[in-house]
């Protein structure tokens, strides 16, 4: 279908972008790659009066190493994230999860910041943002502020971005040595949304699990951390038969998964336990080849 009419603005600087957004009214939307927004417009599920296209705003695109963290510009495409040597070296979980987003053509256009700002709990990157404690940088005509990932995802498709704010970049903390990572995703077809996804990071010393982080995709109206698993896995011997499985049994605790055509909540809870086990095993074995 053809989207409803809207006004279109293409600012070239971030200052111009926030000014245009501030003046464009409450029904304006920010457009980057458009791979979350345009499908909504085409299905006429959204009727913005204006689109502010930040796709060519200077300085919003690219990956840089900033010492204790990696900085990913909001309009960096998924394809650029996956190919980035900095991302692959310092935050492989981001590369692993991003490589599973949709398909190559979508990854050429869809952006890292767009996926987070869209705040879809079925998207792969919000759970990774939570698991890695990313920090989101936002800007409005009033100035800049940062929002920790833990406070960013408020509800289904609802983020902490205030009207007039644009996500400009994301800080991904470097976790240092000893960590292994994995993103385990279950979906019906190659490019479908995750029925359930699990982002796992495991730090070990001599086979003992010291620290675990688990983010769950599509297990509620927002991405969630599997805190009970993180607690239960601490101190276990990763190689001991059944140890990680017992920790993963806690994966559905406190979750509120949706029911849809493809899965009921109890089935998603089952998947969360099974996939979390797989993710923990792979992450603790450092079996996360970046192909």
């Amino acid at each position: 279908m053809i989207p409803a009419s809207f006004d279109y603005f293409r600012p070239s600087t971030i200052e111009e972008a926030v000014d245009v957004l501030a003046g464009a009214g409450e029904e304006a939307k920010v457009l980057a790659g458009g791979h979350s927004l345009l499908p909504l417009l085409r299905l006429r599920l959204a009727y913005p009066t204006a689109l502010i296209d930040v796709g060519r705003v200077a300085g919003l695109r690219g990956v840089s190493d900033r010492g204790d963290h990696v900085h990913i510009g909001a309009t960096t495409t998924h394809d650029e994230v996956v190919r980035s040597p900095i991302v692959r070296e310092h935050c492989p979980l981001v590369a692993l999860a991003t490589a599973t987003v949709a398909d190559p053509a979508v990854r050429h256009r869809g952006t890292f910041g767009g996926s987070l700002a869209h705040a879809d709990p079925a998207g792969d990157l919000p759970a990774v943002a939570l698991a890695l404690d990313m920090v989101l940088e936002v800007r409005s005509s009033a100035g800049e502020r940062t929002i920790p990932a833990a406070g960013f995802f408020l509800d289904y498709l609802e983020s902490a971005l205030a009207p007039g704010e644009i996500l400009t970049g994301v800080r991904v903390p470097k976790l240092g040595p000893g960590w292994g990572f994995h993103y385990e995703k279950f979906h019906r077809t190659a490019q479908a949304w995750a029925t359930v996804g699990v982002a796992a990071a495991v730090r070990q010393t001599n086979g003992t699990v010291e620290e675990v982080r688990v983010g769950l995709t599509n297990m509620g109206p927002t991405p969630v951390r599997a805190a009970a698993v993180e607690e239960a896995a601490r101190g276990v011997e990763a190689g001991q038969n059944g140890a990680l499985r017992r920790a993963a049994e806690q994966a559905a605790e406190g979750t509120d998964p949706p029911a849809d055509l493809h899965a009921q909540p109890d089935y998603r809870m089952h998947l969360a336990r099974v996939l979390t086990h797989r993710a923990l095993v792979s992450a603790s074995a450092h079996r996360s080849p970046l192909t």
Partner: peptide
């Protein structure tokens, strides 16, 4: 192909 990379042309605005 848009600047040499595959894209789905139903998901790109002509202005983009």
């Amino acid at each position: 192909l848009l600047d040499g990379r595959s894209v789905k042309s139903c998901s790109v605005l002509a202005v983009q």
